[in-house]
Amino acid sequence: MLIDTHCHLDFPELVKDRAGVLDRAAAAGVGRMITICTEIEKFPDIRAIAESDDNIFCSVGTHPNHAQDEREFSSAEIVNLAMHEKCVAIGEAGLDYHYDRAPRDLAHRVFRAHIVAARETGLPLVIHTRDADEDMAAILADEMAKGKFKALLHCFSSSRALAERGVELGLYVSFSGIVTFKNSHELREIARDVPLDRMLIETDAPFLAPTPYRGKTNEPAFVAQTAKILAEVKGIELDELAEATTANAIKLFDKMPPLAA
Rank of each mutant, 00 (worst) to 15 (best):
T5L: 12
L9D: 11
F11A: 11
P12R: 12
P12A: 15
D17G: 12
G20E: 10
R24L: 06
A27Y: 01
A28W: 03
I34F: 04
D54C: 08
I56H: 08
C58R: 02
C58F: 04
S59E: 07
V60I: 10
H63A: 03
H63G: 05
H63M: 09
A67P: 05
E70A: 07
S74G: 04
V79A: 12
V79G: 01
M83R: 15
K86I: 09
V88Q: 10
I90Q: 00
A93R: 02
G94D: 05
A113I: 00
I115L: 11
I115A: 04
L123A: 13
I127R: 03
E134W: 05
A137H: 00
I139P: 02
I139F: 03
A141L: 04
A141P: 02
S158D: 10
L169M: 12
L169R: 02
V173F: 02
S176R: 10
V179N: 07
F181A: 13
E186Q: 15
E189K: 13
I190A: 08
V194A: 04
R198V: 07
I201C: 07
R214V: 12
G215R: 07
K216F: 05
T217C: 13
L230E: 05
E232T: 08
G235R: 08
L241E: 03
T245E: 03
F253P: 08
K255L: 12
